[in-house]
Design a protein around this nucleic acid. Structure first.
Length: 271
DNA sequence: AAATTCTCCTGAAGGC
DNA sequence: TGCCTTCAGGAGAATT
């Protein structure tokens, strides 16, 4: 499940292979992702040179001189770099064929998206209302504090809300809240500025560490399976139901919030 | 307006 | 071994 560190790792992995290169042909084997891949995408891209690869939230933006390809990996999406004429496997839905290499999109659950815009991608309806990047300076204590005021919702749903801050998926929300000892069900408006500062720093720390871990596997990116980074990170609470807390040995609790699994330590994370 | 629930999908895991 | 059920989750859409 690609979280922000995986998307960033993917970006860094594909960039050196395709930047400034020309697409010769596009093959689509399955149009139906979260939204249909535009029918004319092959015609749009054929013969065009990739000018820029950037990221906004978990969206990868591949910019050409006449528009931008917007790619989201969803839950199970993966972009890989394979040699030309490499045979495709199940769920390899889309190939962007360049001179020597293929940028291949694989996505068993098809929650991802491949879209095209000929305007400013940041003004695309999917992107224009997104909150700040978590690692940017505009995501800071004051901002989070303001975003939490008058909010009845619990703090976990606030930090996972992409209109407030992007890129904090379920795993990292759990981990960051544990790091600062905040109970995931605590109401957002009850956090003071000091707690917001700690939480902001925890989110940044968790994401930075994970991106760094992802970076260590970059050299393997050409290999088809390329296990990405965050598994390397030691998770403190996520997926550890009933196992002893690393800090106090008390059993980690699993509860459900907004239909998402929340793992926390009742002793270390006080209400 | 804000908060919650629903939805897409497949593969893995668990029960019998 | 195999079939069936349940669960996982990103995030936009629909609903409350």
């Amino acid at each position: 499940m690609p979280e922000l560190p995986e998307v960033e790792t993917t970006l860094r992995g594909i960039k050196p292979h395709f930047l400034g290169k020309k697409i010769t042909v596009v093959h689509i084997r399955h149009h139906q992702l979260r939204w249909p891949i535009p029918q004319n995408i092959a015609a749009i891209l054929q013969g065009k040179t990739l000018q820029k690869i950037t990221r906004r939230a978990k969206y990868l933006l591949l910019t050409f001189n006449h528009g931008t390809l917007i790619i989201h990996l969803g839950m199970s999406g993966k972009l890989s770099v394979v040699a030309n004429n490499t045979s495709f496997k199940k769920h390899d839905h889309c190939d962007f064929v360049f001179d020597k290499l293929i940028l291949r999109y694989h996505d068993p659950r098809r929650f991802g998206a491949i879209l095209w815009t000929d305007g400013d991608p940041l003004q695309h309806s999917l992107l224009k209302n997104l909150g700040p990047e978590p690692l940017s300076r505009s995501f800071n204590a004051k901002y989070l504090y303001r975003s939490c005021q008058h909010k009845k919702a619990n703090i976990k749903s606030i930090i996972m809300n992409s209109q407030i801050v992007v890129g904090v998926g379920n795993i990292y929300a759990n981990e960051a809240l544990f790091l600062v000892g905040i109970h995931p069900a605590q109401s957002a408006r009850s956090l003071n500025l000091v707690m917001c500062e700690k939480l902001v720093q925890a989110i940044k720390t968790v994401l930075r560490k994970s991106i760094k871990a992802g970076g260590t596997t970059l050299r393997d990116f050409l290999q088809a399976d390329g296990k990405l980074g965050y598994f390397a990170q030691q998770l403190q609470v996520y997926g550890r139901k009933n196992l002893p807390c690393f800090q106090c040995q008390q059993a980690i609790i699993l509860l459900r919030q907004q239909q998402r699994a929340t793992y926390f330590c009742a002793k270390c994370q006080n209400k």
